[in-house]
Simulated scan of single mutants.
Amino acid sequence: MTLYPVTSSSHHRAVGNETTTLLFDHDGTLIDSETVHYDLWRDILHEYRVELSEDFYCEVMAGIPVKQNAVDLVEHFQLDVAPAVLADKKHKSISDYLDRQAFPLMPFAKETLSTCFKNGYTIGIVTGGSKKSVEKTLSQYELGSYVSCVVAVEDVANSKPAPDCYELAMAKLNKSPSECVAIEDTQTGMNAAVSAGLACVVVPTILSKHHDFTRATVQYTSLNEWVSREFGR
Rank of each mutant, 00 (worst) to 15 (best):
M190Y: 10
V201L: 05
V181G: 07
H210N: 12
L207Q: 03
K209S: 14
V194I: 12
Q219L: 14
D212C: 09
Q219S: 12
F213Q: 03
H210T: 15
V203G: 04
W226L: 12
T217E: 15
N191G: 01
N191C: 08
V218K: 02
A192W: 00
A193M: 05
S208Q: 06
E225F: 10
G189T: 13
P177E: 09
C200Y: 04
S208E: 09
T188C: 06
T221M: 12
E184V: 11
R215Q: 10
L207A: 11
I206M: 08
V201N: 11
S195Q: 04
A182L: 01
C200G: 09
A196Q: 09
V202N: 14
G197D: 12
N191M: 02
T205E: 01
P204V: 03
S195D: 08
H211C: 14
Y220D: 15
L198D: 14
A196V: 08
I206S: 13
V201I: 12
F213P: 06
N191K: 08
L207P: 01
S176C: 02
Q219M: 10
S176M: 07
H211T: 10
H211N: 15
K175F: 05
L207W: 05
G197Y: 14
Y220P: 13
C180K: 10
G197I: 15
T188D: 02
F213N: 00
Y220Q: 15
E179L: 05
T188R: 00
S195P: 03
V181Q: 05
I183S: 06
G189Q: 02
A196N: 03
C180I: 07
M190H: 08
G197C: 10
A182G: 09
A182Y: 00
L207I: 10
H210G: 00
N191Y: 03
N224C: 12
T186M: 01
K175L: 00
T188Q: 02
I206W: 06
V201W: 07
A193F: 03
G197F: 13
M190E: 11
C200V: 00
G197E: 13
F213M: 05
G197A: 09
C180V: 12
V194E: 07
T186P: 04
K175W: 02
S208N: 03
N224E: 13
G189F: 00
V218G: 14
